[in-house]
């Protein structure tokens, strides 16, 4: 028996937020989050299997691409790091800003594996690559991220 969809939102809402925010600037991430759960709600009675989180992340990944296309802009190094003073929790912003500076493939691999916690074979399904390529992209991405964050702290 399938559980009520509200339980899915309660259990996975936060991780889907982190995926959306990892892939997109704040405002676009909010759009992607609602689009993801709206689509998931519509399909929930037909969902099969037990990998709910992987399913949601796959939808979120597609919705993030849609939102990017719709707003006709790309994530640039400037996104999220304007010259304005850092808001409370400024260090949090640093991580999102650093993620925004990664190449698309590395960013997606880091977000889906290290932030969403999907195993590499599921990351590969989401991004349409091989498991080995996903592993390499995540590894390269994390190395790049460390460099970026150290530079920002300096």
């Amino acid at each position: 028996m399938r559980e009520p969809f509200e339980h899915v939102v309660a259990e996975h809402g936060e991780v889907v937020w982190r995926v959306c925010r990892g892939l997109l600037p704040q405002h676009d991430a909010e759009d992607a989050w609602s689009e993801t759960f709206l689509a998931a709600l519509g399909a929930w009675d037909r969902f099969e299997g037990d990998r709910v989180r992987g399913w949601l992340v796959t939808i979120a990944h597609r919705k993030a691409l849609d939102v990017l296309r719709a707003s006709a802009r790309t994530v640039t190094p400037e996104e999220g790091v304007p010259d304005a003073p850092a808001p409370p929790g400024g260090r949090d912003l640093d991580l999102w800003a650093a993620l925004a500076r990664l190449p698309d493939g590395q960013r997606a691999a880091v977000v889906h594996h290290h932030i969403a916690g999907l195993p590499y074979d599921e990351v590969a399904l989401v991004t349409g690559t091989s498991s080995a390529a996903a592993r390499k992209a995540a590894s390269d991405g994390v190395r790049r991220l460390r460099t970026l964050l150290v530079l920002e702290e300096a």
């Binding site: 936060e14 982190r18 909010e30 949090d92 290290h114």
Partner: peptide, 17 residues
């Protein structure tokens, strides 16, 4: 492999979403 630690989402943000 070190996990990338992201901040927990603000409950007010999740409520708004």
């Amino acid at each position: 492999m070190t996990a990338v630690v992201t901040p927990p989402a603000d409950p007010a943000l999740l409520a708004r979403l």
